[in-house]
Design a protein around this nucleic acid. Structure first.
Length: 583
RNA sequence: GCGCCCGUAGCUCAACCGGACAGAGCAUCGGAUUUCUAAUCCGGCGGUUGCAGGUUCGAGUCCUGCCGGGCGCGCCA
């Protein structure tokens, strides 16, 4: 619809030679928008106001000239000049009806743009450390990322979804240690579990399941001899560091490694299954360990070195990040020879580009905001355009139970899992609830509220509209009638009620909303739209009967709600929410 | 101290590169169905868009400064 109007306005402008210069720099599609108020027609354009200054006339006068130049079109009923110089465009019934037909012809494809060859997009999201089950914060990342992925695909982009598995570093040693310690406990060794260890119940479950052949049960004395005290008497990091060394010593590096790898793989698989049940599917699970084992980190560092982007200072290797807009230079290889996490990140993003993705989107927690300039600097230093990395920051989900904010520490084990949340409120409600707010808005999630008021969740309002339409068609069949869609399409002119016009107009907005939501990575636009569309439908439902005696009117109305069903179904599909035939 | 994000109705939030009287839901008050699901609909109440300036024909939106909240500023991951 908008495309059509844009074209008409462009033609009008093109036929006015005196505007050629001024209009050259104007992207017409940005000057056209849906009106908020139906009294202002269907579309409005502010081109006259934008061009008036450079042309040297007042906006209303210019608007009059543009209106006079407007090409005659069966799609437009009338044009008005309003306010300071808006041109209001009223679409004809024929134009609205053509859209209804398009919806029914295109079905599942309605609202989808033709596939683009480029850019190839890589969308990375969740990427939670495999040290425990996902919690409700990760759920927000999953729902948002999956929905943005769907939106980008609908907008025609070729997009892959990737999960970066942080399976390297000290946290993995702590995980391996935690599992081993629980295994020892299960075999009768008594000691206080380290405060810095992973304390969740799932650690015990992993300990009971994994292959520990070759591991000997050690007693308390052998375990704790010469180990510095844990907090509060000592330093918890020193304590757990010494325990890791003790574990490697007693088990041998190979067996410790075996326990660690099994533990992380068990957790990673659990995460994958959890997300899959939530409708969040990844094309690839990319291991941080693999970056090192395949030499990609060294390769990336070599590229930087060749470009003179590295230097040595205080025994460490530094990357000249400041040259590329970062606050300061960053260490990539520590004094002790160990590469930093940042080195992996540079290599990982370098690898994304090398694999042929020309546009990268990372969805990260808002606490990672300092990370974007750093990685961009890395890309730029390696010769890639820094703007090819887009970072969307997700604000936190704060959990409340009985009005009290809950701790979300993974190590303490005091967190509510995504799985528990899904079981309480259902996948559909959770998916929709998570994306209703803008990503840069905090989300307060009150568990009691979500549970007790789950029927008030807007998801049911939208689903109910879909189910009601299905129900109408069931009723129709029970009455021994059927819907003659072709007769319905021929009689769309009979739809003259205000609710019918409102619904027609709302349906035609869908493709624009999908594009808007995709371009802004803002699924909430689609949620709000679907709620409004459902409202238009419910109002219609209450005001008029569909199954009326007059066959022509009946079929026309059924054709209209049929199109409504298609659009709601497509929209819910993008959101990953089910569209039930019955509720 | 420096940086990023946020501040809109009693509550939770919308508002499409700046556009027309700032919109929904919840709450509250009042109505609607002998008819296709009342998980619905219609209406009322509710606002100095944190504060003060500036740019503009026009500012919730852009700029500056304050106030308030969140997060980040490691040779951690």
């Amino acid at each position: 619809m908008k495309t059509l109007v844009t074209k008409l306005v462009q033609n009008a402008l093109a036929s006015l030679p005196e505007l050629a210069d001024a209009a050259a720099g104007l992207a017409v599609e940005t000057a056209i928008e849906r009106t908020r108020d139906p009294a202002h027609g269907d579309f409005a354009t502010n081109v006259a106001m934008r061009l008036a200054k450079s042309v040297g006339t007042n906006p209303r006068e210019l608007a009059a000239r543009i209106v006079a130049a407007f090409p005659a079109s069966p799609e437009v009923d009338k044009l008005d000049i309003a306010g300071p110089g808006f041109i209001n465009i009223y679409l004809s019934a024929a134009a609205l009806h053509a859209e209804i037909k398009a919806i029914l012809e295109q079905g599942n494809c309605y609202g989808r743009q033709p596939a683009k060859d480029s850019p190839r997009v890589l969308l990375e999201f969740v990427s939670a450390n495999p040290t425990g089950p996902l919690h409700v914060g990760h759920g927000r990342h999953g729902a948002y990322g999956a929905t943005v992925g769907n939106l980008l695909e609908a907008a025609g982009y070729d997009v892959d979804r990737e999960y970066y598995v942080n399976d390297a570093g000290r946290q993995m040693d702590i995980l391996g240690l935690s599992v081993w310690l629980r295994w020892l406990e299960a075999h009768g060794t008594q000691f206080d579990f380290p405060g810095a260890g992973y304390r969740g119940e799932y650690i015990r479950e992993i300990a009971a399941q994994i292959d520990t052949r070759g591991a000997a049960v050690v007693d308390r004395g052998a375990l704790l001899r010469d180990i510095p005290a844990d907090a509060p008497d000592g330093d918890k990091e020193a304590h757990i560091g010494a325990l890791i060394e003790r574990a490697k010593e007693l088990l041998g590096a190979q067996l410790f490694n075996h326990i660690r790898q099994q533990s992380l793989e068990s957790i990673r698989q659990d995460i994958e299954q959890d997300l899959a049940e939530f409708g969040v599917i990844f094309d690839r699970w990319y291991s941080e360990q693999s970056l090192e084992t395949t030499g990609r980190i060294d390769a990336a560092l070599a590229v930087l070195r060749d470009r003179d982007m590295l230097y040595e200072k205080d025994g460490a290797t530094w990357f000249r990040a400041e040259q590329f807009g970062d606050e300061k230079d960053r260490v990539v290889v520590r004094e002790n020879g160990v590469k930093t996490y940042f080195a992996s990140d540079i290599a990982y993003h370098f690898d994304k580009r090398e694999r042929g993705y020309d546009y990268l989107i990372d969805i990260l927690g808002s606490d990672h905001h300092g990370y974007a300039p750093r990685v961009r600097a890395g890309l730029a230093a390696m010769g890639y355009d820094a703007s090819s990395l887009e970072v969307k920051l997700m604000q936190f989900v704060a959990l409340y139970r009985n009005g009290e904010k809950l701790s979300m520490s993974t190590r303490s084990g005091e967190f509510v899992t995504l799985r528990a949340l899904r079981e309480e409120v259902g996948n559909d409600a959770a998916r929709l609830f998570y994306v209703m707010r803008s990503n840069d808005q905090h989300l307060d999630f009150d568990l009691e509220l979500a549970k007790s008021r789950s029927n008030d969740n807007p998801v049911y309002y939208i689903q109910y509209a879909f189910a009601r339409i299905a129900s109408v068609f069931r009723q129709l069949a029970e009455k021994g009638l059927s819907h003659d869609d072709s007769r319905g399409r021929d009689n769309l002119d009979l739809l003259r009620e205000s609710q019918e016009k409102a619904l027609c107009s709302a349906l035609g907005r869908y493709p624009e909303v999908v594009l808007l939501a995709a371009n802004n990575r803002a699924p909430q636009h689609l949620v709000h739209y679907l709620r409004e569309l459902a409202n238009d439908f419910h109002s219609y439902y209450n005001a008029h009967a569909f199954i009326v005696d007059d066959p022509a009117l009946r079929d026309a109305r059924l054709t209209l709600i049929s199109a409504t069903r298609v659009v709601i179904g497509n929209g819910l599909g993008i959101l990953g929410v089910s569209a039930p035939e019955k509720m």
